[in-house]
Structure formats: C-alpha cells, structure tokens
Amino acid sequence: MNMKMQDIIQVLIITGLISLCANFVPQIAKTGSLMEAFNKGTVEAIPGMLILIALAAVSMWLARVLPGGLPGAAYVVTLGCILTYPGMPGSAYISAATAKVGFLQLCTPLLAYAGIAIAKDLDVFAQSSWRILLVSAVVFVGTYLGSAIIAQVILKSIGII
C-alpha cells in the first residue's frame, strides 16, 4: 500500500465517475425520462461526489503524515461525521450534497472490483472442506443472530426502537 497520492486521487476520481454512472440508472424508473434521470442522478450528485473524493484523499494523506498508524478509514469516517454533525458550519450543505450520492450505487463498483479480486482466493476456496464451510455458515449466522438479539433487547429497553 505505497501508492502515490497522485495515483490514489486518480483511482478515487475513476471510481467516483463509475458510481455517478450507476447513480442515474435507478432514477430512470423514478423520473421516467433519460434526461431527467441524468440530471437528478448524475449532474446533481457531482458536488457531493467531489466532497467525498476530497474527504477520502485528505484522510489517506492524514493517515500517512500523522503519527499513530491509524488507517485512513478511521480518519475518513471521523471527518465525514464531524463535517455533517448538526450545527457545524456548512454541515447542512455537505449533508444535502452527499445525500444525492446513493450509498448503494457507491457499493456496486466497490463490489465489482471485489468480485474480480476474489479470483485470487478462488482456488483456496475450492479446496476448503465442507466442514469448514459448514462451520463458517454457523459462525456467520450465530454471530449475526447473537448481535441482533442483544441489539434488539437493549435498544428496546432504552426506548430507541
């Protein structure tokens, strides 16, 4: 992970563009016209996407220059959180602009890249025994269910849900 900042920004811009393309597809069904979908889904989402790219780039830079060895992901979530915290100057604008970027449409490119990268692990996966697969499935279901039960009980008892 020693990419140049320049390369990082380039990758962020490319992914941002792909995500903006994805962003207008669901709008077609909603608005009924291609032009309007392009306007709502892509053109209106550009400022938000630029903010996200800037946040990501700044955070990766911070992860490099600041001591402590925290990953960039920790900085980017914190920064995004602070900038959109109710009452922060400009928070309403940033929040509204980034809200135009559908988070599901942001995930689609990520998982497309992830799908391509999976090929690396496919051979090992094909060799894993059915025992490990069964244990994996139980571990995933068990952990998810366990956490959901605890979350449900506590959220209910403190009156959030």
């Binding site: 962020l12 995500s19 946040l55 990501a56 955070s59 990766m60 992901a73 980017v76 980034t98 942001l106």
Partner: peptide
C-alpha cells in the same frame, strides 16, 4: 482506496 469513498459516504 475504493473503500475509502464508501467510508466517506458512511
């Protein structure tokens, strides 16, 4: 790097 964009959105 790509994950960072999603994390920013989160």
């Amino acid at each position: 790097v790509i994950l960072m964009l999603l994390m920013a959105r989160y």
